[in-house]
Design a protein around this nucleic acid. Sequence first.
DNA 1: TTGTTTCAAAACAACGTTGTCTCAGCTCGC
DNA 2: GCGAGCTGAGACAACGTTGTTTTGAAACAA
Lengths: 333, 333
Amino acid sequence: MRTPTMREVAALAGVSIKTVSRFVNGDETVSPAIAERVRAAIDETGYRRNDLARSLRPGQRSTTLALLVGDLTNPFYGSIANGVMGVARAHGHNVVLASSDEDPEAERRGIDDLLGQRVAGLLIVPGAMDYGYLGREVDQGTPVVFLDRPALGLDADTVLLDNHGGARKATEHLIAAGHRRIGVVVAASHHTTGRRLDGYLDAMRAAFGEVDEALVARLEHGTRAEAEQAAAELLALPPDRRPTALFTTTNFLTHGALRAMGPGQGTALVGFDDFPFADLLPTPVTVVSGDADEMGREATRLLLTRIAGQSGPPRRVELGTVLIPRGSGEQKP
Amino acid sequence: MRTPTMREVAALAGVSIKTVSRFVNGDETVSPAIAERVRAAIDETGYRRNDLARSLRPGQRSTTLALLVGDLTNPFYGSIANGVMGVARAHGHNVVLASSDEDPEAERRGIDDLLGQRVAGLLIVPGAMDYGYLGREVDQGTPVVFLDRPALGLDADTVLLDNHGGARKATEHLIAAGHRRIGVVVAASHHTTGRRLDGYLDAMRAAFGEVDEALVARLEHGTRAEAEQAAAELLALPPDRRPTALFTTTNFLTHGALRAMGPGQGTALVGFDDFPFADLLPTPVTVVSGDADEMGREATRLLLTRIAGQSGPPRRVELGTVLIPRGSGEQKP
DNA sequence: TTGTTTCAAAACAACGTTGTCTCAGCTCGC
DNA sequence: GCGAGCTGAGACAACGTTGTTTTGAAACAA
């Protein structure tokens, strides 16, 4: 059985297609007798309006927003998706999800697909590729909002965390606890973690002047395993060069570093990004954290105002971070 | 600026619409000179094929799969979504996401929306509502696959975990460690946790005969907070009635129970569902776990075979579970 | 040169819907 | 009794594509 069309319903009810359309869309100008016939025909055929055909009409835009996000297994991205979907649904929009954690070429193909489907707008957690070509789509009425990091090649609305400030806050917290030699574990390539590194460096320089490069562990990919090894190496330095505290710049890296420390967790640590069970670890973990859910919500709000037609220069929103002291960051050297 | 159409490109290039269509779709029968004119016109206008209009043509089905899933903040659902998207993308399908964690009416509205958009198939983590009305859509060519629990009112392809077997395995593991009084924390209403409770009861009965109802903590909603309180009450029972081990039936409940135990974690525990950091807790947590990612993948594979036209009776796939001993489940009474 | 073949490109119809226009029938007032 | 006014319902076109048919022109053989 195929999906029935309006034409078939109309034939069954013995009326014209347009009358079925009127009934389906709640037009008042359908007499009760005819309306009942149409209702019965719809019921019998299981007719359902085809919104694809509907949105083809002039001036119509799809109501679907597209979200390009990294690995959904990461609770950070899960929260973003959650926030996006909440606001979208509240405004009657659907959300298509695409993954951006692949190579740039696959990502570009994915975006092209979505544009071909005439989504109403794009929410993108940008990767390393150049997004300049999207400028034309923006001009043609498909707004774009970037989340978590600014995009290369396109100056559009962007929602970020205050990565620099948060990292600075984390580092100063460790300094206030009496630490001088504070190691940092950071993924080399990302903009976000770059800003976090800068925040760390600024705090360190403000307190002690020059920063010992040996304290900075730069990872290539930012995986848990890399972090574990890097942290282990930091902690294996001779006592005079060994850090007494660590600042880990993402939740994955925090996980890796904790693993390197083992159950004792003798070294002080502050992590960027909160994570579940942080409060249940042997030494509960102090973190600096932004609200990913709110990031998704705010980005969606921005996108919706653009879809509604608001023009104007790109906006950049920076969401604040909070430091949650739980124990690991308050340990003395 | 509006999105240009084929008509506009054709006008600019001085050819017919159809010729643009031929060029865009890689038809060989376009002479090089004309092809170049069309290419230039597309470039100048920023034309992009409208896949909505395209899929309106007879016999065309959208390439979009819909996924209805609960709270994406839960890593379990995040992994499912991850698996779904991986397989979908590998087969050239997009994924629309909708949330099912609301009231049944909102969920039904969401499903209706998706059907109106003529998605190629539905992947649903069912809630408490009756899905019978989807039978008609299935007949009309929109297949449905359920994940994680069977749906009320519709017998369709379903991918489940072996909840009964996993729970039994967990309970027997605790029994083997010497426990006799094993408490269980379970959400009352869900099918999934119901099966897990059955697995627990079967293991207990097989070992000891009748099960003391005082050992079974039934929660109304299955939240962390509820679990924390219920676990605290179990552990506060007088010594002769107090359980010496707990079996918690979801990761949220495990989290709550661990909180109730405090840092000591003196009571043995096995949880259903793995979770990050389980290995880093003071007493690393033994879990029974299924592969959510694989569940998403398998469900998507089933859906794709249906979309490809395979008929036949509903299939039910049960994925196995593994017990991961980490310490908490091996503690003696 | 003329008839035939070949092929690129145009014309047309259709997909399922809705906005606009038109028309038929009715009611009402004079 | 007849035109004006109204109202319910049908006809038609259009949205942006693509499959099919048709056209036109060039190429070639007789």
